[in-house]
Design a protein around this nucleic acid. Structure first.
Lengths: 138, 138
DNA sequence: TTATTTTTCGCAACCTTGTTGCAAATTATT
DNA sequence: AATAATTTGCAACAAGGTTGCGAAAAATAA
């Protein structure tokens, strides 16, 4: 397990440091989305606040994580699937936010139906955020 | 025109003040979404920053405006259509963000297709944010 | 392995964004 | 016009996020 974390970092041209390993591990263990606050709570005792910000930014730039738009505009990040990395995020997946436990989940298998826009509009990306009750809380 | 602004405020049980009139007017003139920053830039010389916040909050509570989730998590507000007001926003419309001019538009006429969630998930709200190029910029 | 270069970290300081309490001013009500 | 109820602006604060820079840690070269 240790090795695979290092590999992910190297594959994305990120130098391997203890803070990056730790934060990446948090994403792998917690298989939902994390807010900056979540990460700070779980790892901030070990790292500076600024380091967490910079690490997330580096992960974003390299396509390791992506951010999720939420109705309350709190920023959340989630791991990208493998095909995310090469510059162009495929990003066309559904995000689900549970109103009860407020966990955020990427539903990669849910297909987004095509949306018919009015004349003159061109779409390059579609973000769908569904809120409701997740299967753990039902 | 002046009269109609007053009417909208009264209809929504908001006392008519100069700041509310001015901010509501901004939304009416600018028929897209506005961020708090936009409003501050356009009206802050006249009003205190806090007043803008409280006005937007009041508008939100009364259902005059609603907020829009964006990919970069900047908060944007847009006027609600008439059927928004009664507590339950209908909210099921598509928001479009132009990558070029970065204006945000409510596409009220675009129908959101129903999305099939995995077993165990219940949906109460679906937000769709499409980004691309708007008809002005194409 | 050691030396050198490059990158990252942590600290402090700062900026932006948003909130709260309270007295003064403005609206609504009578 | 007088009173009651809201709203405003100020100041002060809190949270969230950024920047510069020397110290520390990684990566690279020798």
């Amino acid at each position: 397990m240790e090795a695979s974390i290092d590999d992910i970092l190297k594959k994305n041209q990120l130098s391997v440091t203890s803070s990056r390993k730790k934060i990446l591990e948090l994403f792998l263990v917690n298989n939902g989305a994390l807010s900056h606050g979540d990460i700070e709570k779980k790892a901030a005792s070990k790292f500076d606040r600024v380091t967490v910000y910079r690490t997330l930014q580096a992960f974003l730039e390299k396509g390791v994580i992506h951010n999720i738009p939420t109705a309350d505009n709190s920023i959340r990040y989630a791991l990208c699937k493998d095909d995310c990395s090469e510059g162009h995020h495929h990003d066309n997946h559904v995000h689900f936010i549970c109103n009860n436990c407020s966990s955020t989940i990427c539903l990669d298998n849910v297909i987004i139906p095509s949306i018919k826009l009015p004349k003159g509009y061109t779409s390059t990306q579609v973000e769908v955020v569904v809120s409701g009750v997740c299967k753990e809380c039902k």
